[in-house]
Nucleic acid binder design. Structure first.
Lengths: 250, 250
DNA sequence: ACTTTCAATATGTTTGAACATATGAATAAT
DNA sequence: ATTATTCATATGTTCAAACATATTGAAAGT
């Protein structure tokens, strides 16, 4: 808990990162590190704005995002407080296939593991928001749990991340991104469909064309909602069920 | 599509409802009514602000919310565009098909709507944790968005909830449960698979047997993790993408 | 035909200012 | 003691203005 404003870290007014963004990041950090007790009073807007040398409006931009994400609550006269309710998706391992499998005690191995630098296709360009013709690092995997292929994975990484293609992808992907590149995934936008296996997919998964396959497209974003990775994968339907638990933000 | 700004409804400057709120509501409505084509250019901020007699800043407040909700996308010089319609499981409406569809402005109707009191099958008994042979209220629905069936739904409710089968299921289900029975869903455990349509499913959805179908099984729990409802549904794969956004617990 | 350069333009950031509004707390009236 | 009133205050709304920045598309150069 901060006794005084003066203990709250400052912002970098010379950075290219917008002030409201810095403020948001800073607050996220402070909250997640429990510098503010739940339900406790938050610094008031005017004070915080003064401390950071930004206008109340700019600070408000940051706070609004946190309110929308359910980390903070605002009430007119009482001020801003830290919410109890965490929008939890329960998944500590929410993004990691290997963690998931390890948790369930299912051994797996990679039947294919390829890293390339390629020109992004149109969909990838759109999702990642990169210019036409831009090159991206692609990671392609076919993973099996047992004798048969279970899933085909393909990821394209936003150039911003800074991958070169020569990294060690043996360790869990999101550990690598965090530790080596200081890129932390926060949001995952997932689209899940059932499709009939194309020839290509059938070959990858060793199934018959036309068989139902679970397709998952996933756009992984950082705290500022900037794209990190666009990922598409095909799961064998007879071997895989996609399970999640959603908790309502009460 | 609006040829001219002049066709866009005005705001009520005398209302007690904030202008940014009115603007947001108005835009939501316009988008949901398909007055703007997907991917098409949106009126630019300056023009819209002028049309509505509000400042660009105020309008921006409204648009920002829509962007955050994924209805709009902004790009620097190119302007604002309407996003591809994602049937997103919004955190607010996380469980309601009707809310989801209404929010996206997709009209739908029930092709079938049956309420029964039946003996639970084995899977339902297990999931709900009720004794063998117990009776449960079942709700069966086939819903369409447009001409063709979109999804087949079947729900079994835990006897604890207290449904008799004679309730008015026309209103959104989770409103009913909350208001009439004081049952509030908090957790949703979901299992998603791709399967080949059986004869029965094919008949419901008017597709050919063997076609890929998205199956979702969902166990809805209350705050104490006691089961409320076991729900199974089959989505036409050519018409439906299951979209969720997961946010990492920071 | 191809690339480079450059200006126009739509969104992005930030500020300071003013007034509205809900509400907790102090004060006054009962 | 209880209720009503008032006031101070923190958030809520809105504005106008200025400058930053990315990107499109056209013009110019190769």
């Amino acid at each position: 808990m901060f006794e005084h404003m003066n203990n709250i870290p400052l912002l970098d007014h010379d950075s290219k990162i917008p002030l409201h963004q810095q403020a948001e990041d800073q607050l996220r950090k402070l909250i997640s590190e429990n510098h503010f007790r739940v339900g406790d009073a938050f610094p008031k807007e005017t004070d915080l704005a003064k401390r950071w040398g930004i206008s109340r409006n700019t600070l408000r931009q940051a706070i609004s995002n946190l309110v929308r994400d359910g980390l903070l609550e605002r009430k007119k006269r009482s001020g801003t407080t830290v919410s109890k309710k965490k929008i939890t998706t329960d998944l500590a391992n929410w993004l990691s296939f290997s963690h998931e499998m390890e948790d369930k005690g299912i051994p797996f191995k990679d039947l294919k593991h390829t890293v390339n630098v390629v020109k992004a296709d149109k969909e990838t360009e759109e999702r990642l928001g990169i210019p036409h013709g831009a090159k991206v690092v692609s990671l392609e995997r076919i993973r099996s749990t047992g004798r048969n292929p279970m899933v085909y994975f393909r990821s394209y990484f936003h150039p911003r991340v800074g991958l070169t293609g020569s990294e060690n992808f043996k360790k869990p992907l999101y550990e690598l991104l965090d530790e080596e590149f200081h890129v932390v995934p926060v949001y995952s936008q997932e689209e899940i469909r059932a499709i009939a296996a194309t020839e290509k997919i059938a070959a990858w998964l060793k199934i018959t064309p036309g068989a139902p396959v679970l397709e998952r497209k996933r756009l992984v974003l950082d705290a500022g909602r900037k794209p990190i990775e666009f990922n598409i994968c095909y799961y064998r339907s007879d071997a895989f069920t996609y399970s999640i638990e959603i908790k309502r933000p009460v």
